[in-house]
Design a protein around this nucleic acid. Sequence first.
DNA 1: ATGTGCCAGATTGTTGAACAAATCTTGTGC
DNA 2: GCACAAGATTTGTTCAACAATCTGGCACAT
Lengths: 217, 217
Amino acid sequence: MTGPVTTVDRAGSAARAAEQLRNSMINGDLAPGTRLAEASLTGPLGVSRNTLREAFSTLVEEGLLVRRPHRGVFVAVLSSAQIADIYRVRAILECTALAEAPVDPPQAAGMRAAVEDARRAIAASDWRAVGTSNMHFHEQIVALAGSQRLNGWMKQLTAELRLAFAGVPDPSALHRPFVAMNDEITRAYEDGRTDTAADLLRDYLRTSERVMLGSLP
Amino acid sequence: MTGPVTTVDRAGSAARAAEQLRNSMINGDLAPGTRLAEASLTGPLGVSRNTLREAFSTLVEEGLLVRRPHRGVFVAVLSSAQIADIYRVRAILECTALAEAPVDPPQAAGMRAAVEDARRAIAASDWRAVGTSNMHFHEQIVALAGSQRLNGWMKQLTAELRLAFAGVPDPSALHRPFVAMNDEITRAYEDGRTDTAADLLRDYLRTSERVMLGSLP
DNA sequence: ATGTGCCAGATTGTTGAACAAATCTTGTGC
DNA sequence: GCACAAGATTTGTTCAACAATCTGGCACAT
């Protein structure tokens, strides 16, 4: 599930604590809006208050936590405007990456692998895994641009989105319809029809945004 | 020049220290590769080691500092590959924003203001200010997309670029030729020729990248 | 002379306790 | 019921200490 322990250990206590909190949030154990009191977390995480605050800083920078001065840090609650913003950015990043991707030969191995992962997760009715695979698919699209920086930003973005997923009551409705679309996009790209693929992707994003905004408050 | 003092004060000691370090780096007082020892900075910045480390975390996350475990933090040195990556991202972000910008009416006030600032700075032979205005111009282009998130990322990006500027021996050669290009881009956009504007911008970025990479080691 | 191993010094990573400042809670009086 | 002030709680920041790790130089064997 998590990475090798040695790697996590070498990363230091602060990074380890941040990783644990990140997982808890994406898993839905920490609902959006939850206040994270420093004193009540030093025990469970096994780190001191200073180290915990350093972990908080990391997660605030990533947008997963929000700090309100002298009041504490809270698990981020994404407003409709923020979700719309995320989809606007995704449209720019993903569509450009796909439209300008190399077609000779296509680099679709990562995308196809993500689609297969999603299929397996659906067969196992593991909706959380479906969401993860789905996000992984779109990270692979951005990876086509070949920019380390964009990869990092996209990863941050999908983490925030998965945070929003955690608040949705029926995850199957949120994720199931999109696996077929991903497959279609991949196929169009593999056939060298990058413009078609980009158009399909744009449709996907519009639909996904609508479902997302509709299933919130 | 810097923001209102009250704002900085309310932001807390950590943010204030980060701001000071950021300015020092962009000003060139801290050359890329310089090691920032914790003990030797607590005095000048007037903060404790813990708070300083929190400031370091922020700047590491922004890409201005690099942390090497148990060795310290260093002012980032951008490799050619990283600079190329920055320009790749800029091309995607800026060209898309400009190509899809509203033309009825055009929102060019910010861009035009940045061009005027650059002109004034040239007249005063203040090359650092020219670089700042120039970067501000491109932040305004991205702002056309209307995404808070993209604005933030672009700001980060220009900060890193200005860090690289600080290492260039002749700043006038680096910045002077581009003000005219910015003016041309703005005019094309104001006339509603967004495709032309985007093409000009693409040329600009190609040229700028070449100059940048050429004037490094 | 050169390479290896080791030790002492310095720096970072982390902890715990302490205090000031701000916020939240409680209880009082009207 | 509501305004208001005192106390309790929590965050923001500092300080001092210790463990873990890296650096540089020295003795030593080859």
